[in-house]
């Protein structure tokens, strides 16, 4: 069945709980109301002719501008070789979606990952806990407003960069020498305007012969 036919059949069954096929650029999807998602999924799996037995992916997208977290279901049917994309919009303040674990077992771990990274609460899930991050992690990293906590259990998340500091310090010393040379040249020019052209030439040449700049201290420990 094509995507249009599937969408029509869903519309006939569920009325306005199921939106129309999207017209955006790229792949097309169907938006479903949050309350009806389990029924729609169960219908798609069991109805002869649809038989969406394969849950390819469940993922989420955070839209702070629209104040929703979209949960996206990529469904496929191995028997009929057709696919469909469903989208559900969960309120961003307290995102909660019913679990489709009863329809496809693949959803168990996929929903756990969305809970871990986005904070979406899947009501009815058998084992909703963090899966990728440590159990005592604070925050939901894939949200757009996530701020890092500055480390974990005392391990910092910055790193000293001695080469960058060395380069900066060397630049400063070089600038200081150039400034001295320019000041000396200006003084010589003020004293004797005519031979200034000759005298100022060796001055910059003598400056780099000055004792090499002391090695600046870095944060590197021996």
């Amino acid at each position: 069945m094509t995507q249009e036919e599937l969408c029509t059949q869903l519309g006939a069954q569920f009325g306005d709980a199921v939106g129309a096929l999207s017209e955006t650029k790229g792949d097309r999807f169907v938006t479903v109301k949050v309350e009806k998602i389990v029924e729609v999924c169960a219908y798609l799996k069991t109805t002869v002719g649809c038989e969406f037995d394969f849950c390819r992916d469940i993922t989420a997208v955070d839209w702070p501008a629209r104040k929703v977290i979209e949960v996206v279901y990529h469904l496929y049917s191995v028997t009929h070789r057709h696919g469909l994309v469903l989208k559900v919009e969960a309120n961003r303040e307290a995102p909660a979606v019913a679990t489709v674990e009863g329809v496809w077992k693949a959803a168990t771990w996929l929903e756990r990952e969305i809970y871990d990274l986005f904070g979406v609460n899947f009501t009815g899930h058998s084992d909703l806990r963090r899966i990728l991050l440590p159990d005592d992690w604070v925050g939901y990293p894939l949200r757009k407003d996530y701020q890092e906590a500055g480390g974990y259990h005392g391990i910092g998340n910055t790193r000293p960069e001695p080469l960058v500091q060395l380069a900066k310090a060397t630049d400063e010393v070089r600038k200081a020498i150039a400034a001295e040379a320019a000041a000396a040249a200006a003084a010589a020019a003020a004293a004797a305007p005519a031979p200034a052209v000759v005298e100022s030439a060796p001055a910059p040449a003598a400056a780099p012969a000055a004792p090499a700049p002391a090695a600046p201290s870095t944060e590197r420990k021996p």
């Binding site: 992916d57 993922t59 997208v61 990529h74 693949a106 168990t108 771990w109």
Partner: peptide, 28 residues
């Protein structure tokens, strides 16, 4: 099957990049 789901918002970086891999499902 390695599935890449990319959502773009018109800028030069992806808005959402999702990778669904075969090993993740096998662990389940």
């Amino acid at each position: 099957e390695m599935l890449y789901y990319i959502v773009s918002d018109g800028s030069e970086k992806a808005y959402r990049l999702r990778v669904r891999t075969g090993s993740f499902m096998a662990m389940g």
